[in-house]
Design a protein around this nucleic acid. Structure first.
Lengths: 223, 223
DNA sequence: CCATGAATGGGGGATTCCCCTATCGGGAGG
DNA sequence: CCTCCCGATAGGGGAATCCCCCATTCATGG
């Protein structure tokens, strides 16, 4: 996550922003906020993957604001593809999704910032300016979380899990309860609980419900 | 669901609109859209139940636009309470949720219209005008469905859930624990537990983990 | 060799799960 | 008008889990 300085120079006049979000109302909100800034201008809108890729290629925007849930395709996929094909374009992910679950994924996918929709009205202009300067934007809480994870080689990813932990994690993702996991793996319930705790720590999850949700999503993604 | 004509007369000058939505960006979108209309004016914003009730009492708006998912409390509850305490105020529900699942519930709770966020930018001004005239606004597709489905609803799946149960189910799907659900809905933990039990019975789920998994999947599907 | 980490478990208090029952208010039907 | 049912609320109580401690064993690499 070292910050490279091979960015394009900031645009001379107005910076051009492309908005990608499946909710027309949210796009209207962005337009209103960004339109008030003298040095920013909205150069296009898209609600899905295909339109976004085409518009980004045509318009050559300085910043693309990407929502994670799109009408067509996924936001994370869009970030990866945009980052590959148009690496000079700064990507700012703005999502309603749980920050702890997606901020790191967004950064790994090539985004230069992640902002929660709850705080978007107050900070989106700041965030855009910041990524325009080549910096990375994260909420204060999330900055802590990500930076402190720099110590560990892998950032809160499933790859950091031990084989045994991954087995347990996978079973959790299949909706199997603690006691049944213990049966299935011929372990004590206490051992499974210990594994759950270690998994939670490694994935930086705060509660059993978060673990369950994360495991379920992970399980669904690779099916 | 017969249309009563005991409405107040339309306001003489500008109609006053109160916006209730937990996403600041969406509120900004509404403000931009409504602000462009000469006969409409935004008289306040709220993100949660309590603020909305207070503002509605203070401001005496002509129309309240209510999102179904709020920062504090639930939109359906808000519609019921507003309809009881301020029956002369027209309520327009605007949600990202599946229309077929919530439009009927919204109307029964006292709303005079339901508009999907996907089509909000194009139709919200029409919808507001329509409810101001004392008519009921629904999308064309939904009008058909509601009017013909007056008899009975499909049982056996999520549609079989009660309003309250559905709210709890949705929060479970967002990975929120029992105690925080209780906080958010201003309920006893015991009540939330009761709802969870009833949901499990209705959906034929055998354990809390199954409920969590099912709710998570359901929640992800409609994002 | 011994520091480290993985795998296995336990203690114990807090919380949740799960099956009961119970009240209360509103709407459907007699 | 008056039951009867049901949705919403909530408590009791025992079992299960959660969650933060900790201990032991065993392999592996520095």
């Amino acid at each position: 996550m070292a910050m490279k300085k091979n960015d394009l120079i900031p645009p001379a006049g107005q910076a051009r922003i492309l908005i990608v979000d499946d909710h027309p109302l949210v796009r209207a909100g962005f337009r209103a906020l960004i339109g008030d800034e003298p040095d920013l201008a909205v150069c296009g809108e898209a609600s899905g993957f295909t339109d976004a890729m085409r518009l980004a290629a045509d318009q050559q925007p300085d910043v693309v604001i990407v929502d994670l849930s799109l009408a067509e395709g996924s936001g994370l996929e869009l970030v990866k593809h945009l980052h590959t094909r148009l690496p000079e374009v700064r990507l700012l992910v703005c999502s309603m999704h749980d920050e702890s679950l997606f901020a790191e994924r967004a950064l790994k996918a090539g985004a230069r910032g992640y902002i929660n929709k709850q705080e978007a009205t107050d900070h989106v202009v700041d965030a855009v300016h910041q990524v325009l300067r080549g910096e990375i934007y994260l909420s204060d809480a999330m900055t802590q979380r990500v930076l402190q994870a720099e110590g560990g080689v892998q950032l809160g990813s499933v790859e950091a899990l031990t084989d045994r932990e991954l087995e347990v994690f996978s079973l959790i993702g299949q909706g199997i309860g603690t006691s049944r996991i213990a049966e299935q793996l011929h372990l004590s319930v206490k051992t499974v609980e210990s594994h759950r705790e270690k998994i939670k720590k490694k994935l930086k999850l705060l509660s059993a419900t978060e673990l369950s949700r994360y495991a379920t999503q992970w399980s669904l993604e690779r099916n």
